[in-house]
């Protein structure tokens, strides 16, 4: 029917969507701020239970994946399809590694009996219950976004392969990149708020 292409419009639309995501996580940060202000000491002690090394590794690799995602756009703009696909491949790989790390991290917590609603947790006092509730909920919602990101990158990579996304029409790739940077942005704040409480 009506065919028109408006890359600026598509990008504006993606940014508006990113705003909704920012406020969605933003409200979780409000919840976090409220409960941390109520139980500062308990949050600090509970934060020490988290694995700083694993958290730092995940931060670093997520930053690297942000770079490869950004580079894949440069590659397609320069017409380098092969490099673009390789960079997308690396991004997807890193996203999977992030999830694997997360799996082991959560697994270790579950083994100690630290999971929402567990009887062990309930004995540890309000601050600890809320800290781990927030930890699982916020990193869980974040991980869900990583999974969606992986799906988007696979779709985009296929489109690049089929030349549906190419040098002069790459707004899908750009928007997926924007989404991925958003996921990174959220993690930039989650990391110090959970792993580095002092």
């Amino acid at each position: 029917m009506i065919e028109h292409r408006d890359d600026q419009g598509a990008k504006l639309g993606m940014w508006l969507f990113i705003f909704t995501e920012l406020l969605l996580f933003g409200m979780l940060f409000v919840v976090y701020a409220v409960y941390r202000s109520m139980h500062p000491e308990a949050f600090r002690i509970a934060g020490e239970e988290l694995d700083v090394t694993l958290g730092t590794i995940n931060t670093v690799i997520l930053l690297i994946s942000s770079m490869t995602a950004a580079m894949s756009i440069t590659a397609i703009q320069k017409g380098n399809k092969k490099l673009c696909l390789q960079l997308l491949g690396i991004t997807i790989l890193i996203a999977v590694i992030f999830l694997v790390n997360k799996y082991f991290e959560w697994g270790a917590k579950f083994e100690y009996g630290f999971y929402p609603g567990s009887p062990e947790l309930h004995e540890l006092g309000y601050g600890t219950i809320l800290f781990f509730g927030l930890y699982f909920f916020m990193t869980g919602v974040h991980a869900l976004h990583i999974i969606i990101g992986i799906g988007l990158f696979i779709y985009v990579a296929l489109q690049v392969k089929k030349d549906k996304i190419h040098q002069t029409d790459h707004v899908w790739l750009e928007n997926t990149g924007l989404y991925w940077h958003l996921v990174d942005l959220i993690w930039i704040f989650l990391f110090p708020l959970f792993y580095l409480i002092h």
């Binding site: 942000s66 770079m67 950004a70 940077h181 990174d184 942005l185 930039i188 704040f189 990391f191 110090p192």
Partner: peptide, 23 residues
Amino acid sequence: LNTLIAMLVAGIKATIVLAWYMH
């Protein structure tokens, strides 16, 4: 101050990601 510094650094990082990676 620790929390403040952590949030400040995170804010700078976020700004950099927004400015360069998110164009």
